[in-house]
Structure formats: structure tokens, C-alpha cells
Design a protein around this nucleic acid. Structure first.
Length: 262
DNA sequence: ATGGTCGAAAGTCGA
């Protein structure tokens, strides 16, 4: 039986309930992993998700910023929660699915504007976050899915203009190399690029600041779904729901959906 | 070279 798992940076779950409804009217989703929920767990709109058939949830929220959540039609078991910066930010939560697969939902720090850790502590914290994830990921034993907003577009075809973005946080060589080390640490399979091979462009994010996101199409692929090697054979399809960027009061990210035979 | 737009929150900060 196919299971469809979505990853979406929703940019405030309370500000955009209409987007969740529209997503589910547009395509089928069994497990929805959200990033940037921007609310504490006691103000999470749980009843709305209940009404949509997502009766199982795992929340890691905080006031104002960050926050991740896993909403599911299937039972979930709390598996892990990580704080890679040891600063209390809610960025990594994991659930165990009924078949034993562990689903990790991660919101990697954006990293500020200046790509130099000497001048911008946020950039250093982003690299440290990924380094600590790399040390952890190398020790993982369970069949796992690692997805979320990684805030890095690794390949030249993952951005609208490779050369123009080499100095822009999200596409700098040091970030790309750091993300590659994380990927190598567990031989994670990048489903985005498995199903949409390079050199085809693939984006999941378009800035709010563009006058016309679709016409200028200055996108980046910041969101990813990776699977551990033993799960690779279960992956059936991948969808980026690009039209969602044009919906009413959109998030700047679009849903990324993978289908598995799990 | 800068600013452009969002959300949360109540002045700005982070993205």
C-alpha cells in the first residue's frame, strides 16, 4: 500500500490553515511534516488537523520562531527530539511509523546574510548544526527518512543562477560541502535528484520579494527528502507542488511529496 | 549596491 509523505515549510501554521486544506484537496498525503510552525504546542491548531483526518501528531514548537510538527493519518510513536545547537530551538523531531521506519523532520538554521562565520555567528551555527547531524547520522542503524527544510541548495541546477548565488547563503561552497558530508555519512539517497535528475532545474522555494515569482522564477531547492539506502527500493515517486507558491497568502516554500511502498 | 515581502509581535528581528 502506498504511503505519501509530504514536507512543507508552512511559515506559520496558524496563519495558513487554508493552505493545508487546499493541499489535501489537490493531492493525497498520509503524513505531513511541517517546518516553521511558529507556535507553542498548546496553541497548535490540533482540532483543525483532527477534522482533516490527521489524528496522530508529534509537535515540537516554540514561541515566535522555528517549530516542527509531524501530522499523520497513521499511528505515530515519538522516537527522538534533537537540539543540535543546545539552545532550545525546536528544529528536529522524529517519529517511528507502524512498520518501524523512523521519520526525521528537520528545520536547518537559515544562517543569516553574511557567509562568513567570523562576521556572522548564525552562519557558523548553521555549519555546526550540520556537523553535529553528520556525527549522529553516521551512527544511525534504523531504516530512516530524513526530510525537511535544509536551507541549502546543493547543486548548480538547484538555483536559478549558480554563479550569481555562489556568495549567497544557501548556495555557498562551504555549505554545499558541509551538506555533502552529511549525505555521505549515511549514504543518504536524495529522492529529489533521483526522480528529477540533473541538469533539469528543480526548486522548492521562491522569495517573497520578487515582484512576480513565476515570471522571474528565481527559485532555489532548499527542501529535501532523503532516505537511508535500505529504503531506496521502496521509493516510488516524488512531486514538488509548484502551483502552491501561487495560492492565496502562500508560504514561500512549496510542498515536497514522496510516495513509498512501505 | 540596495531593496524588495512576509509573520510574530508590538519595535524590530529573522527569514
Amino acid at each position: 500500500m502506498p504511503i505519501r509523505i509530504a514536507s512543507w515549510n508552512i511559515n506559520s501554521v496558524r496563519a495558513r490553515p487554508h493552505l493545508i486544506e487546499r493541499l489535501l484537496d489537490t493531492t493525497s498525503v498520509d503524513i505531513l511534516c511541517l517546518q516553521e510552525t511558529k507556535c507553542e504546542d498548546n496553541s497548535f491548531p490540533a482540532a483543525a488537523f483532527d477534522g482533516l483526518g490527521f489524528r496522530h501528531r508529534l509537535l515540537a514548537g516554540q514561541r515566535m520562531h522555528h517549530g516542527v510538527a509531524i501530522l499523520s493519518r497513521l499511528p505515530l510513536e515519538p522516537a527522538y527530539r534533537h537540539d543540535w545547537q543546545a539552545n532550545g530551538e525546536a528544529r528536529h523531531i522524529a517519529a517511528r511509523l507502524p512498520n518501524g521506519v523512523v521519520l526525521h523532520n528537520v528545520y536547518v538554521p537559515a544562517g543569516g546574510d553574511i557567509p562568513d562565520r567570523a562576521f556572522n555567528p548564525k552562519f557558523g551555527q548553521k555549519l555546526n548544526f550540520l556537523q553535529r547531524m553528520t556525527d549522529w547520522s553516521g551512527t544511525l542503524k534504523e531504516p530512516s527518512i530524513l526530510l525537511g527544510d535544509f536551507n541549502i541548495a546543493p547543486h548548480p541546477e538547484d538555483v536559478w543562477n549558480h554563479k550569481a548565488l555562489l556568495d549567497v547563503v544557501s548556495h555557498t561552497p562551504i555549505e554545499v560541502e558541509t551538506l555533502e558530508q552529511l549525505q555521505k555519512s549515511h549514504d543518504w539517497v536524495d529522492l529529489g535528484r533521483h526522480f528529477v535528475p540533473r541538469p533539469e532545474k528543480l526548486f522548492t522555494w521562491w522569495s517573497y520579494r520578487a515582484q512576480d515569482w513565476l515570471a522571474s522564477n528565481r527559485g532555489r531547492r532548499l527542501d529535501h527528502i532523503w532516505v537511508s539506502p535500505e529504503l531506496f527500493g521502496t521509493a516510488r515517486a516524488l512531486e514538488t507542488l509548484v502551483p502552491a507558491r501561487g495560492w492565496d497568502r502562500p508560504s514561500d516554500h512549496v510542498p515536497l511529496i514522496a510516495e513509498f511502498d512501505l
